[in-house]
Amino acid sequence: MLKGTLQTIILKLLDDNNQMYGYEITQKVKEITAGEMILTEGALYPALHKLEADGLLETSTEIVDGRARKYYKLTEQGGKEVTDKLNEAKAFIDQLQLLLNLKPALNKLSK
């Protein structure tokens, strides 16, 4: 996974689902990508905690089945950041697409 995309994925998921807990996020990524992308907890939690420290996420704790469950949701600032991050990701994918499509053409030119 490219650096920075994990944060975009988390922000987008939370934008779509209001609030989620860690395990739920990993399962959602697995479900959406039909198991092609596995989000490890070793990467997920540091990213969640960083986003929280940056003020993009806020947390709340609920007691579920007798144990504390921490939910993450977007702050107002986080909500604004989603659009920016998605635009950045789209621009990057467009550039990548352009580069990859150009490659065969460049090969032909060099021959």
Binding site: Y23, T61, V64, R67, A68
Partner: peptide, 10 residues
């Protein structure tokens, strides 16, 4: 709490 919840849910 966060790690325990994740493991138990898993």
């Amino acid at each position: 709490d966060e790690v325990a919840d994740h493991i138990i849910t898993g």
